[in-house]
Amino acid sequence: MITVYHNARCKKSREGLELVKNSGKEYKVREYLKDPLSETELEEILEKLSFAPIQLVRTKEKLWKDEYKNKDLSDKELVSVMQSNPKLIERPIVATKDKAVVGRPESKIEELL
């Protein structure tokens, strides 16, 4: 089963979801702004991505620049920041049981599928 962590307001996320739909594979959508991820879920996604937490943060977001940019945050603190501010999470994330990718560029999703 493929899970698409999706933000319907984001063009790249909509495009990524469309790729998954067109693959014909079984999938589910998790709108993480409406149904926020737990810290444990974020840690599992980070492990599948092989990312350090900062790599999943949208560092160009105004919220990040205003509130967190100049703070020296641990990985655990970064996960907590993303959990409480899901709009800071890169998107879309497409995950299988064992692996995940951030769908920028879209070719990463194609490789995963």
Rank of each mutant, 00 (worst) to 15 (best):
Y32S: 00
Y5I: 02
L73R: 01
K48M: 12
R14M: 06
L49I: 09
G24W: 10
L19V: 13
E110T: 15
R30K: 15
I109V: 14
Y5G: 01
K12Q: 11
S84V: 10
L33T: 05
W64L: 08
F51T: 06
V101L: 10
F51E: 06
K25T: 10
T96A: 08
K71T: 00
D72P: 02
T59E: 12
V29D: 01
A8M: 00
A52H: 12
K108S: 09
E67K: 15
V20S: 00
V20M: 00
K99N: 14
K12A: 11
V102K: 00
P36Q: 09
L63P: 07
V29H: 01
K69T: 08
N70L: 04
E26S: 12
G103V: 05
T96Q: 09
N70Y: 10
E18T: 13
P92C: 09
E43P: 00
Y27T: 01
E47P: 00
E43W: 03
D98R: 09
Q83M: 10
K34S: 12
L19G: 03
L56W: 02
V102A: 02
R104D: 02
S13K: 05
Q83H: 13
P86H: 05
E39N: 07
V101A: 09
K60Q: 14
E31Y: 11
K65R: 14
R91Q: 07
V29E: 01
L37K: 00
S107A: 15
V20R: 01
P86Y: 05
K62R: 13
P105T: 13
L113W: 03
K71I: 02
E15C: 10
K21I: 13
K71Q: 15
M1A: 14
E31T: 11
Y32P: 04
E47N: 13
V94H: 05
D75C: 08
E18Q: 14
E67L: 12
W64V: 08
S23M: 03
R91F: 08
K12T: 13
G24S: 11
L49T: 08
